[in-house]
Design a binder for these strands. Structure first.
Lengths: 230, 230
DNA sequence: TGACTTGATCTACCATACAAGTCCATACTA
DNA sequence: TAGTATGGACTTGTATGGTAGATCAAGTCA
């Protein structure tokens, strides 16, 4: 399990309190531990993660830049509700960035990183048959990140990570069955095959359909959990 | 002059010390008031803008997220040098995002905002003949922002603003002559014409050539000011 | 009754003090 | 002289006190 941390997407361990709180809080929000609309506060976060108010504050500011929380001056901080209008832009942005990445990947693709991708796909294959949701999501991020790294687009990948957080939050609401996991792995293979063949149009198309798949359950979630939306 | 603040791209006035310092520092870095490699420090910024260390610190953190400065823990903070590798990704990212915006603009374009764009173009026309660099850059940002707003892509525009900061810094180094200003206005007209005609391919093409123009002087700058690069 | 005032109690924001790591010049030692 | 400690002057990171603004409920006056 620890070997996957050697891939290009492995985040460097954060030693600072601010970084630690930011990361934990980010994951907690994505995992719906703090549902949309939840009222947070610097002091609350501080005591929860056993740090002072300052790191807690800076963590909230960081997440507000991404758009996961909303800081209302002198009033409070709350977890942003999901907005279909916002999700539309998130989808467009991620699609634009990641299709650009795979197109560049068809021109320039680091062979060393390429060889490491097969292992990621195998991990996904096993996780799909096992129905292992956690491993699927983690290795999915690794897959996309590895492609970006191989295409020398790591700065763009950082941008993708920010918008991806919103999609991950929605995805966490859609209960993943084995079928959709298998579809995901198949789509991943289609993407990497197109890159291997240096076919930009095919790669772009494969990536686009893959990303479209992620949000196809959004209307259902909207109907079921209207309180999470605005 | 104040009427232009009514357009969609006008940032809401920041009353907080952190916001004010962030904005001033950002513009100062873009204007090369702090050249790449300059060593900053929280205390230094604090005294310069007459605030305490805390707002200065948070401003530096914000700019480090964009990539304009680099915070080295316990060591210092410096203005990031220009990297051709980084600028390549900046160009790809902005191209991807803004072509996506104009494509969406061909499907959906707010007529009220559309009508305000003509005034922006006229302002640019005057500024180009006058050789007014400041007005050109300001209204350029307004033009792109207005298109994003009309296409209901304001969240994507925020992302563009971040990467645009890097391109603006390079652009500030290339002394703008009247000819290139006129080219800029002509390209803007080509973009808006394509959107008016609801021609996605043409709009994308026009935007792409326009953005390509901005960085065409990058090699010359690299040769002249190698100390700004890494 | 209804509009307004007031005050208690939240909040984020800012200022300041302290802690800990880094760098560098200087002094010391072999 | 070359190498190594060492102490001080930086830096960012963290903790905490205090302030202004927002909210809301209770009270007051018409």
């Amino acid at each position: 399990m620890d070997s996957i941390r050697m891939t290009a997407t492995a985040p460097k361990p954060v030693r600072s309190a601010t970084g630690a709180v930011t990361e934990q809080l980010r994951q907690a929000i994505i995992a719906m531990e703090f549902p949309p609309g939840t009222r947070l506060s610097e002091g609350e976060i501080a005591t929860r993660y056993d740090v002072s108010r300052q790191p807690a504050r800076e963590a909230l500011i960081s997440l507000s830049k991404i758009g996961l929380v909303q800081v209302l001056p002198q009033r409070g901080t709350l977890v942003t509700k999901i907005s279909t209008r916002h999700m539309m832009q998130v989808r467009i942005a991620r699609e634009a960035l990641e299709t650009a990445i795979v197109q560049r990947a068809c021109e320039r693709f680091d062979p060393v990183i390429r060889s490491s991708i097969d292992a990621i796909l195998e991990t996904q294959e096993r996780a799909a048959t096992d129905g292992d949701y956690l491993t699927i999501t983690q290795s999915d991020s690794q897959f996309h990140g590895a492609i970006a790294a191989a295409a020398d687009c790591e700065m763009i990948w950082q941008m993708v990570l920010d918008v991806k957080a919103h999609m991950d939050r929605v995805r966490h609401l859609t209960l993943q069955d084995r079928d959709s996991m298998r579809i995901l792995v198949r789509q991943h293979r289609a993407i990497i095959n197109a890159i291997d063949a240096r076919d930009p149009e095919q790669a772009e198309h494969a990536m686009r359909t893959h990303l479209l798949e992620i949000l196809k359950d959004l209307p259902r979630v909207l109907a079921e959990r209207a309180d999470y939306f605005e």
